[in-house]
Structures are given as C-alpha cells and as structure tokens.
Amino acid sequence: METVLSISNLTKHFGKIKAVSNVNLQVKAGQVFGMLGPNGSGKTTTLGMLMGVVNPTSGSFKWFGEEPTHHIRKKIGAVLEHPIFYPYLSGQKNLELNAMIKECDPANIPKVLELVELSDRKDDKYKTYSLGMKQRLAIASALLNEPTVLILDEPTNGLDPMGIAEIRELIKKIAAQGKTIILASHLLDEVQKVCTHFAVLKRGVLVHTGPVDDVGRGSETVEVTADVENLNEVLLKFAGTSTINREDGTFQVSLRDGFRSQDLNKFLFENGVIASHLVTRKKSLEKQFLEILAGA
C-alpha cells in the first residue's frame, strides 16, 4: 500500500516543555487513522507541524514521499482544533476565499455545501452559525479541493449528541470514498467506531500504534444474570472460568483461552440454570487505551 505520510523523529519543544518527542509514524493510503491521547499529549502540535503552522524543533516528515511544501498542503484538507473562518464573511464567501487560496475550482462549493447540508444557510454570515454548523462548514472547506487526505482534529468537540452522530456519519461517508483520514480525538468510542488504525500519544511520546481490529482479540468476558441463588457457585464450576466479578447485580465472567460464550451458555443449561441475560463483551478500546497509558 502507498505510504501517504511518514514521520521520522519529529520533535517539538516549547521552551522547557517537550510537546512532542521523537515521533515515528506511517500512515498508508485508505486508512482511517486515529490519534489518541489525553488532553495536552501533543496531538494538535503534531498535526500543526504536519500542516506547516508549527516549526519542528527537529525531525522531519514526508507527504506522499515528498518534502513538505505549501503546494502539498493544498492537496490536503485539514481542520485543526476549532473551525476558523472570517466571521464577517458568509459561508459561501469564506469558501470562495479558501478556493482561491487552495487554487481549486470554485465549482466544488455547491457540492461540498450540499454534502454538509449548509446550502440554505450559505449566504448568512459565519458569525451567525451554530457550533455544529461551523464544524460542518470546516469539513466542507477541507473537502473543497477534493483531497485524498483529510485531517480532522476533534471534529465533534462541543457538539450535541445529534451533531456528533451527523459528523460521524459524514466521516464514514468520506472514508467510504477511499480517502485517507487522520482523526485526532480523545473520544475513544469515536475512534473505535470509525477508525481502522490508531496511535496513542502520552506526554508527546508515541506509546502505541496498530490496527483497531486487534483490540478485543484475546479472551472474552461474558456478562451473566440468572434467577438462581447459587449462580456464583455454578459459574465457578465451569471449566472455562478464569475470574468472576460481581458488578451491579450481574456476574462478569472472564473466560480462559479457547472457551467461548456459547460453551458457558451450554454448561449453564446442562446444570439446570437458564440465564435471563447473557452478553459477550469484547475488550473496548477504552480499556485497552487505559492499559496502554498505564503501561507506558
């Protein structure tokens, strides 16, 4: 697969603060790449360097195998932190200006406005927009030059649940077109839902990188409730049980390798226990993320 972005030993110090230290990373074409990390872990600084607004202290990066120039940035769509536009210009005029800067065809403007459902508000001044509309205009602007790579930094920050769902759908729609997306977020749920790969930053250091699908591999946890007194004892008798936790009236059973939830279900039934509630829990990205951060 073609490498879209390769970062080598990228470092940024603000005085004594080491915002980003020696980050090495590769993003391939077609990946939806999630950048995770607590607030202040260097996600935005890293993206700022990739987009030319922060001068790196040392290290380098290449877009499409080329040294970065402002011409390359014109081929990338990016929204860093919050949306930035001229408040006194209308959405339409802001996009016209961006089309001039990116030297792309202004004929794309109606298309992207349609995609983010802002066509009927395009002639209103940007400052009259709600936060969700501002975010959507920013995504429209990022898509203006039909980029093959899209960088989104906290695209759902400050949105209401409906807005979050809308943006998430939009990202999936864009990803389905085969675009490479780099998505920085501290919302793990979001990353797990849309990303194919992810990296974790902690205090400027890259502590993990890998595919999202790998998360949740390994042992299963099964959540069981049944209307019997001695459920605990029955579960302990099951050969596949590794540990049992009682949480909010349900039993969380961690299974040994090689045992699946259906084995447990069968065992219970054979022992005359009928479960009223039985759910297989994959390990969430959240859990994995916290483990990675704790381990680093």
């Binding site: 990016a78 860093l80 930035i84 536009f85 001229y86 030297e103």
Partner: peptide, 11 residues
C-alpha cells in the same frame, strides 16, 4: 480570528 493559521493550513 486565527485566520493566518488557517491560511497557512489551507496552503
């Protein structure tokens, strides 16, 4: 307005 930053990001 931080538009200088966005101008640079936009290319």
């Amino acid at each position: 307005y931080r538009t200088l930053r966005q101008n640079i990001i936009d290319g």
